[in-house]
Computed example of a mutant assay.
Amino acid sequence: MAKKVEVKQLLEAGVHFGHLTRKWNPNMAPYIYMERNGIHVINLYKTVAKLDEANAALKKIAASGRKILFVATKKQAKDIVAEKVANVNMPYITERWPGGMLTNFVTIRKAVKKMASIDRMKKDGTFNTLSKKERLQVDRLRAKLEKNLGSISEMTRLPGALFVVDTMREHIAVKEAQKLNIPIFAMIDTNSDPRDIDFVIPSNDDASKSIDIIMTHVTNAVAEGLAERKAERQSDKEGAGEPQAPKAEATKEKTVEETPENAKVEAVAEAAIETKEVKEETPVVDEAPKVKEEKEEPKKEAAETPSEEKSEKGDDLTKIEGIGPKAAEAIVNSGIVSFADLAKAKSDKIKEILTEASSRMAHLDPTSWPKQAKMAADGKWDELKEWQDKVKAGVE
């Protein structure tokens, strides 16, 4: 688990410095501690609380497999954000924000594919057949695309969240995310409006030290989410390779004989708990039938456990294009917890659920969601991904 940020660290980094009092936004009043020498001072205790809240949400989004798009085009932040975010393999924009980056995502993807086609031309020798002037023009186009869109080349669909440094400067990105109901995380200074932001981190967004410490903790949380996802997928892969009950028995025997002392103690404790559960559930009859039931019962439990856990946990509905974390939460709360349930639901009913949950989700178009859910429920993930790449924001 990542180390929790302390108020002292934020204080040393200058996170508490706000703007001049005459430039403040009154909506930031709850996050302002005091005024000193004509400058507002941010309440760092609230910064810590809000940062922890944002990190928990970012970790969850990263663990679900969705991308988080980081936006920071100001001079003080661009190099820091590019360095930190590249370490966790997330997309970022540190040059100019391309208008329609989210609302016209299909066109942006075409530009990215153009970059890939130029690379293929250079590999297969087609590039060398062009004239000197044409090669120069293609090289310039490739360099321009790389500068503006190179960092989002692996983002094949709309991001699961947007992280912004300085919402005043990146107001177009914020508006586009709002229109598509994408959750917005942001560093908010005393001159910004926090009302349009889902996860506010009140902090100094002008000083490089302040940006560095906030981005360090944010990217650590994202890295944790990615590590959890990797571990979960690894365990699922291992579980799919062998039958559940024999694997459990083999593990018990091997663990007691071969593992170190600490692992032995844990294995014995687990075996004792399982034996106790079996004995409590097994009726007291003759000795021979009792032994037989004790052998059969664990196999039955092992066989039933995955389906029970799946029914309780449900499916990750955010894998459907157009469904964000908030929309998924509203749908799950209505009783639709799996891809199969969503495939059977009518789009009018889904629209009604979203509108009742929040007026901000009233613009969402769930027409294609049952179709996507049907493909997901049938396990046609390649077909689903291909379909999502062709359409715009999940709307045919």
Rank of each mutant, 00 (worst) to 15 (best):
K3M: 11
K3R: 13
K3F: 09
K4E: 12
K8F: 10
Q9S: 14
L10R: 02
A13W: 05
G18D: 10
R22E: 10
R22V: 14
N25G: 08
M28G: 06
A29P: 02
A29L: 15
P30V: 09
E35C: 07
R36Y: 08
N37T: 06
I42S: 01
I42C: 04
N43D: 15
K46G: 04
N55I: 07
I61E: 08
A62G: 10
A63W: 07
S64R: 06
G65L: 12
V71H: 05
K74V: 06
K74L: 06
V81D: 05
V88S: 10
V88H: 12
I93C: 04
T94P: 02
T94W: 07
T107L: 11
K110C: 01
D124S: 08
N128G: 08
S131H: 11
K132W: 08
A143K: 14
K147P: 00
G150R: 10
G150Q: 09
M155D: 04
P159Q: 02
P159A: 03
T167W: 00
T167I: 12
T167D: 00
M168A: 10
E170N: 12
H171W: 04
M187S: 04
N191K: 07
P194H: 08
D198Q: 01
I201M: 07
S203L: 00
S203Y: 00
S210K: 01
I213A: 07
T216R: 13
V218R: 00
A221M: 02
V222D: 09
E228M: 12
A231P: 00
S235A: 15
K237F: 11
A240I: 03
Q244I: 12
T251C: 11
V256W: 08
T259I: 09
E270Q: 09
A272R: 11
K276V: 07
V278D: 05
E281Y: 09
P283M: 06
P283R: 10
V284N: 11
V291G: 09
E293H: 11
A302Y: 02
A302Q: 04
E304V: 03
P306K: 02
K310F: 10
D316Y: 06
L317K: 03
K319N: 13
P325W: 04
A328Y: 02
N333Y: 02
S338K: 05
D341N: 15
R360D: 15
H363T: 13
D365N: 14
M375F: 06
A376Y: 08
L384F: 00
G394F: 02
